[in-house]
Simulated assay, not measured.
Amino acid sequence: MQIKDRTYVISGGASGLGKATAELLVENGASVVILDMSTESGEELVSKLGSTKAFFHETDVSSSSSIASAVKASLEFIKKTGHELGGVIPAAGVSLPAKIVDRNGEMCDMDQFDFVMNINVRGSVDLVRQFCPYWIKRQPEKEVDGGDAERGVIVLVASSAAFDGQPGQVAYSASKGAIASLTLPLTRDLARYGIRVVTIAPSLFESRMTSMMTQKVRDSLLRVMEFPLRPGQAHEFASLVKHSIENKMLNGTVVRLDGGMRMPSKM
């Protein structure tokens, strides 16, 4: 899929991995729609990228009505710029660590479990779902090599926790495992429309979420890294998003972005 003169919608796009992705795509000629709960951060990013290339809409991805409002506003921005929808990148995510039962015998809070699942799974699926009716009706991108034309790319965000989750990650691992598992059926649902699906599963990356880790947790993760011996950087995630957009043979797959790291079972 072409990046230049296409629009890419990024939830969680005002900070961390989503922000780095927005910046790289604009650098390569795209327009971006940034969906986030933080109005201050979103508007600051638009100011940096330019209002002709970036648009912000305050969005709660756990709410279907909020997503519907975001989709409507996004399509108005697309009509204004003339840059058709090229991709949807649901990068909004949360983690609320809690063991199923703690050392005092207290059970985990199911409201917190539901919150994580609603943002990470429901929010991702709902965002994709609500763009699809528009997406499948528009003309696909013409291919210069005479191959099959495509309409766009969905880049989902899982985590290494989907495969080797740590103690206290029942909710988070369940949510990211769901994203990994739905990659192939979503691919098969949308293949007839020329829409690809790629999921990226990063390990420890510098982000707003990981900045809240205790030093003990961070040190335990650094000890099991292979190479490089450091957390991933946001621009490294963004570069894989860029490649996923441009490489048509990436479809229906989950790509681990972890430097060979496997999460430890104990801190």
Rank of each mutant, 00 (worst) to 15 (best):
E141M: 10
L35I: 08
H243E: 12
E106Y: 10
I200N: 03
V128T: 07
E236S: 09
K79R: 15
S124C: 10
G260A: 13
K79E: 12
V88F: 05
G13E: 02
Y134G: 01
S181F: 02
S31I: 03
M261A: 09
G105I: 11
S239Q: 14
E226H: 13
I100Y: 11
M225P: 03
S47A: 15
Q166F: 07
S66F: 04
D145L: 12
K248F: 09
G252Q: 06
V241Q: 00
S41F: 08
L222M: 15
A171F: 02
R192T: 14
P133E: 09
S47H: 11
R129Q: 14
K248A: 13
G87W: 00
K248M: 11
Q215L: 15
V46E: 02
V32K: 01
S66R: 06
R6P: 00
A68Y: 04
V125P: 02
I34Q: 00
S74Q: 03
S173Y: 01
M249I: 11
L250E: 04
V125Y: 15
S47G: 15
F205V: 04
V197I: 13
S74N: 02
I200H: 00
A201F: 02
V197S: 06
G252R: 04
N251Y: 08
D148I: 11
P231F: 15
S207D: 08
L190Q: 00
D126S: 14
G259L: 04
V224H: 12
G12F: 10
L45S: 08
A180F: 01
S175M: 04
H83Y: 13
Q233M: 12
I154A: 00
S11K: 02
A92H: 06
E43G: 02
Q233G: 01
I34E: 03
G194D: 04
I34V: 14
K72Y: 10
K266G: 05
I10H: 03
I136V: 15
G168K: 07
E43M: 11
F131Y: 08
P228H: 11
S207P: 07
N247Q: 12
Y172T: 05
K4M: 06
L221F: 14
M37T: 10
T187S: 14
L45C: 05
G29T: 09
P185F: 11
